[in-house]
Design a binder for these strands. Sequence first.
DNA 1: CTTAATCTCTATTGATTTAGTAGGGTTACA
DNA 2: TGTAACCCTACTAAATCAATAGAGATTAAG
Lengths: 147, 147
Amino acid sequence: MITQKAKYALRALTVLAEADDGEPVMISDIAAQQKIPKKFLEQILLDLKHQGIVVSRRGKQGGYLLLKPADMITFGEVLRIIDGPIAPLPCLSITAYRKCDDCDGEQNCEIRHVFAKVADATRKVLFSTTIADAVAPRGAEVTRMLA
Amino acid sequence: MITQKAKYALRALTVLAEADDGEPVMISDIAAQQKIPKKFLEQILLDLKHQGIVVSRRGKQGGYLLLKPADMITFGEVLRIIDGPIAPLPCLSITAYRKCDDCDGEQNCEIRHVFAKVADATRKVLFSTTIADAVAPRGAEVTRMLA
DNA sequence: CTTAATCTCTATTGATTTAGTAGGGTTACA
DNA sequence: TGTAACCCTACTAAATCAATAGAGATTAAG
């Protein structure tokens, strides 16, 4: 299960993706629109800012904007920032590798082998889907495939 | 990330799969062989027993045995018992479906749509791999595919 | 029939994570 | 210079994780 926080982050980004270019969106607007507790959303957007996903403008007329185009922001990178490693085992994580203390001999660990396949399949989906895909009207994906 | 408990469960089952047919294996032997805290393993095996994965014999010469052949026990069903739902969102769970309180209109929820693909991919791997696969010598899978 | 070995079950515990809340501090537009 | 907005840190209640503890039930062996 992904955390509530990650769900909030993804929803918030879709709001930013739908905003007019260069027009900052206020935290309170995003919170209201997506029913996200405002103070919690603040933290989330701050994280996303620190990790180079969004930028902010302070003071009156301030708010948040996407730093990169929506079709350059993948679900995978957002999940990594908010929820941490994608991999189901520490010894399979790309960003936070840690040897399993029990299984010695990773090459021979069949459990690892199975979960490596899970991790691959998961990454394929998460890193090939972007915020733009989440905003696109229904059927857009199919349309793109036929083009 | 799967829990430590799930990893222990899978390892314990591979030990049972490797035991001679009809020969019960004691908790302490499994614990020693796989470096699992014995009392913790007790609980795990009890769970697996209640869920019809293994059977036990009490008293002297007692121990645990697989209830089904190892190639009929999938990683997926073990994970469900120990860690709960496979799906990354409650609204995608087969065994523990729960409507997301925020996203109304599941058909139109694009986040759900993306994670549905993740869930499908994960299930494909987890329910097509069995304890027998985890015990089989390296390369067995390839051999089977070429046959 | 007693004893020791073995599984059975429930409760408890400490650490960590999750999902927020709280409350100032800082910036910048008007 | 006021005040609307983001910035940042700390705190907390509840749940989950990874065990540990200990009494009870069952069975094989002597």
